[in-house]
C-alpha cells in the first residue's frame, strides 16, 4: 500500500482527516427527486395493475359477464374521451420539448395549459358519463369493479391537478417538465 503504513499494534481504524471535507462533497448531491418520483410511479402503477388484474380475474371466474341486467355501456363518448386523454400525452411532450430544446417558457406554459384543458375535458366527460351509466357502485360485481378500476386512476389525476397548477407558475428554462410528463402518461 503506497503512502500508507501498517501498524499491527494499533488495532483500530484510522481514517485520515486529510480527505476532502464533507461539506464540499455532500452539500451538492444531485437532485434525486426525479429518480424518486419515477420509483414512486412504478409503485403507484402496481396499485392500478392490482385493480385491473382483479377486474379481469372477476371477469374470468364469473359465468355471465357482465351479469344479467347490467345496462349497456355507451361507447362513443368514452371513446372520444379516451382519444382526448391519449392525445394530451403528445401535447405535454411538446411542452417538455419546448422548454428543453428552445428554452421557450411561453410556449411550454401554453402547451402545458392545453394539456390541462384536455385533462379537464376528460374529467368533465367522465363525470357526465358516470351520471348516465344506469348503474352504481353497488349494482353488481361488474359495476363495482368497473367503477373501481376506472375511477382510481382518474381520481389520481385530480390529486395531481394542484401540483400541475403549481408547476405552470414555476416553469423556467432550468426546470424539467419530465416529472409532470411521466405522471401524465
Amino acid at each position: 500500500m503506497q503512502g500508507s503504513s501498517v501498524n499491527p499494534s494499533q488495532g483500530e481504524l484510522n481514517y485520515s482527516a486529510t480527505a476532502t471535507p464533507a461539506a464540499d462533497h455532500h452539500s451538492e448531491h444531485p437532485d434525486l427527486r426525479l429518480f424518486g418520483f419515477i420509483v414512486f410511479l412504478v409503485s403507484e402503477s402496481m396499485l392500478f395493475l392490482g385493480l385491473f388484474v382483479a377486474y379481469f380475474a372477476f371477469r374470468v371466474v364469473t359465468p355471465l359477464w357482465p351479469p344479467a341486467g347490467t345496462p349497456e355501456l355507451e361507447l362513443i363518448l368514452p371513446g372520444i374521451n379516451t382519444i382526448i386523454l391519449l392525445s394530451s400525452s403528445f401535447v405535454i411532450h411538446r411542452a417538455d420539448t419546448a422548454i428543453k430544446e428552445k428554452g421557450d417558457v411561453k410556449a411550454a406554459r401554453g402547451w402545458f395549459l392545453v394539456t390541462m384543458a384536455m385533462g379537464a375535458t376528460f374529467l368533465v366527460g367522465q363525470v357526465y358519463e358516470y351520471q348516465h351509466l344506469g348503474f352504481g357502485l353497488t349494482t353488481n360485481l361488474f359495476a363495482s369493479t368497473f367503477l373501481c378500476a376506472d375511477g382510481f386512476p382518474w381520481s389520481s389525476c385530480i390529486c395531481g391537478a394542484p401540483v400541475d397548477v403549481r408547476c405552470v407558475m414555476a416553469i423556467s428554462p432550468t426546470r424539467s417538465l419530465f416529472p409532470n410528463q411521466s405522471f401524465w402518461h
Binding site: 499491527p8 488495532g11 476532502t20
Partner: peptide, 13 residues
Amino acid sequence: RPEALVMTSAANP
C-alpha cells in the same frame, strides 16, 4: 489481513 488492523490516509479516494 494486516491492512485491516490500521487504515491510513490516502489522498486519492
